[in-house]
Design a protein around this nucleic acid. Structure first.
Lengths: 141, 141
DNA sequence: CCTAGGTCCTCTAGCCACTAGAGGTTCAAG
DNA sequence: CTTGAACCTCTAGTGGCTAGAGGACCTAGG
């Protein structure tokens, strides 16, 4: 009926170390232990961890996941909060896409214009050295 | 002719702490110091730091920037390496855009289908809890 | 010459979400 | 009872900074 952390890891494709980490930061409740202090999980742990995993795949931060989990635990509440969290994440994703598209454009230009001769005439290096560009945000990822 | 770290910071829009960090990791050469051990930069530092800043804006990692800088310092070399670095970065950006587009799709669906009633019927929560999806990579950013 | 205060110095610790490894214990199969 | 895979805790490292403590320096005004 209950199973080990390794089995939970296999069933959710979440690494053992990560599961322990999630417990440590309070995303997963601490399960009961055997006499020898090994964790034993019930079935519910699989769905909770799958929820967390899917949320992380969608890029939700741990704090957001905490909020989403506590909503899931109280099904009678309004889901406005869940909606707001998802919409905020969507907005983030869209703005990341926009800035990555801008990056792509600049990188494409650099690469296309490079005649691939000596560094002295290299457009890649030249573009990077060019000081005449606005002070945008640093790219993440 | 030479100026302080604060002045360099103002001229490049790179924070003082970051400049010191770049020196520490060997991206910027250690400049001469005053008798009281304060850094004094020459004009060249501005363009080198601007190069670094622009590279970071384009998302190049520090190791890649190190390589690009050493190419810039040897203008007679072939620029094939610079080209390869830029192309690798472009490929990264394109794959990030693709996966963010997939995320956007899923988030949009979640948000659109949410009738915004109680959590019990919330599509956002339901989607996250759904275990029937592939084991994709975790989203970064 | 003296002082005020803005700027500079080094060093350490924190951010995020893990991940890796050391060094030791427990469990289940044979 | 033995073996060895899996488990335990704890610490430290990743990348690229950023913040803050606690103190030294530098320059302009009086």
């Amino acid at each position: 009926m209950d199973f080990s952390i390794g089995e939970l890891s296999r069933r959710t494709a979440v690494k053992v170390a990560t599961i322990r980490y999630y417990e440590q930061i309070g995303l997963l409740p601490a399960p009961p232990r055997t006499e020898g202090q090994q964790r034993r999980y019930a079935k519910g742990a699989v769905s909770r961890l799958a929820f967390i995993r899917h949320s992380r795949e969608l890029g939700f931060e741990v704090d957001a996941i905490r909020a989403l989990l506590s909503l899931q635990d109280n099904p009678d509440q309004s889901c406005a909060t869940a909606d707001a969290i998802a919409k905020a994440r969507l907005a983030e994703v869209e703005s990341r896409i926009a800035s990555l598209n801008a990056l792509r454009l600049e990188l494409t230009r650099m690469v296309d214009e490079c005649a691939c001769g000596r560094v002295a005439e290299c457009r890649v290096i030249e573009t990077l050295a060019d000081r005449s560009h606005g002070h945008g945000r640093l790219a993440q990822g």
